[in-house]
Computed example of a mutant assay.
Amino acid sequence: MVVLATKLYVEGEARERSLDSLRSLVTNEIGELDAEFEIGIRHDDFPSVTIDGDDATVARNVLREEFGEIVPDLQAGDTYVGTLESWDEDGFVLDAGQGDGVRIPTDELGLGPGSATQIRERYGLVQHLPLRFVYGGADGEEPSRLAETEQDRLYEWTRGDGRLNVNSATRAEVRATLNRAGHAQDYVTVERLGLLEQSVICTEHTDPPGLLASVGEYLPAELRCVVP
């Protein structure tokens, strides 16, 4: 079994659509392998994928690489993926399946000046966004920190033409909403950040705050802009 490091936290019909989307994503990744799978949702909203078949080991590794994995125990110095659960002036708290969460102090984010709240706004970080981090240890002597690969990814966001980040919606739902609202020519693509977290990559002449104002009423979600 693999517990994927992306959350399914919506309810009702949206939950069923999200489950269908997750099944499609898993099928795209391992469908050609000799493996069958079943998906369950844990009490903490992380999906678990049970895999059987001759290629089960390979399939598990493919899903770990694609989504990241929630593991029972964290080892100091190792890199994991957690979802952005909460934030305050002093740092981020990531949900890595450990109950209380993993706190990353502002000084360990490595994303420039400002409080953690200001940094979240600057980089357009929506709640539940999967983020890679290096675990500091349970004793608290070494703080956990954002992984360098994650820092590089987020810095790249601020060097492009702008982004609109969204949660609580699948990639297909975001694309359909953009097209329906008349913005088919205003974005390059929708990048999947997690199952329900997406990043709309804007064209050179698109204003991310203007795009947010236009489509916000159609998406019951949190939306955050990245403005270069």
Rank of each mutant, 00 (worst) to 15 (best):
Q75Y: 14
Q75R: 15
Q75T: 15
Q75A: 13
Q75D: 15
A76T: 10
A76Y: 14
G77K: 10
G77E: 10
D78R: 12
D78K: 14
D78W: 14
D78Q: 15
T79P: 08
T79F: 12
V81P: 03
V81A: 06
G82M: 12
T83L: 09
L84M: 13
L84W: 11
L84G: 06
E85Q: 14
S86R: 13
S86P: 03
S86M: 12
W87P: 02
W87T: 13
D88Q: 09
D88A: 07
E89K: 15
D90W: 14
D90Q: 14
G91W: 07
G91N: 06
G91H: 10
F92G: 08
F92L: 15
F92M: 13
V93Y: 07
V93Q: 09
L94C: 04
L94Y: 05
D95M: 04
A96F: 09
A96T: 00
G97Y: 06
Q98M: 11
Q98N: 11
G99D: 00
G99S: 02
G99N: 03
D100L: 11
D100G: 00
D100N: 11
G101L: 03
V102L: 05
V102R: 02
V102S: 03
V102Y: 03
R103I: 10
R103D: 03
R103G: 11
R103T: 07
P105I: 00
P105Q: 08
T106S: 04
T106E: 00
T106Y: 09
T106I: 01
D107H: 04
D107F: 04
D107V: 05
E108R: 10
E108A: 14
E108I: 09
E108Q: 11
E108D: 08
L109R: 02
G110P: 01
L111T: 08
L111Q: 06
P113K: 00
P113R: 04
P113D: 09
G114R: 01
T117E: 15
T117C: 12
T117H: 15
T117N: 06
T117V: 15
T117K: 12
Q118F: 14
Q118G: 15
Q118P: 10
Q118Y: 10
I119E: 07
E121T: 15
E121C: 12
E121P: 09
R122N: 10
R122S: 13
Y123A: 12
Y123Q: 13
Y123M: 12
Y123L: 04
G124E: 00
L125Y: 07
L125M: 13
V126Q: 08
V126Y: 01
Q127L: 14
Q127Y: 13
Q127G: 15
H128R: 11
H128S: 15
L129K: 09
L131C: 02
L131E: 06
R132E: 14
R132L: 09
R132G: 10
R132W: 06
F133W: 05
F133P: 11
F133I: 00
F133T: 01
Y135Q: 08
G136Q: 03
G136V: 06
G137A: 10
A138W: 03
A138H: 11
A138T: 14
A138N: 06
D139L: 03
D139Q: 09
D139Y: 08
G140C: 12
G140D: 02
E141R: 14
E141A: 10
E142M: 12
E142K: 08
E142P: 00
E142Y: 07
P143D: 11
S144A: 09
S144D: 04
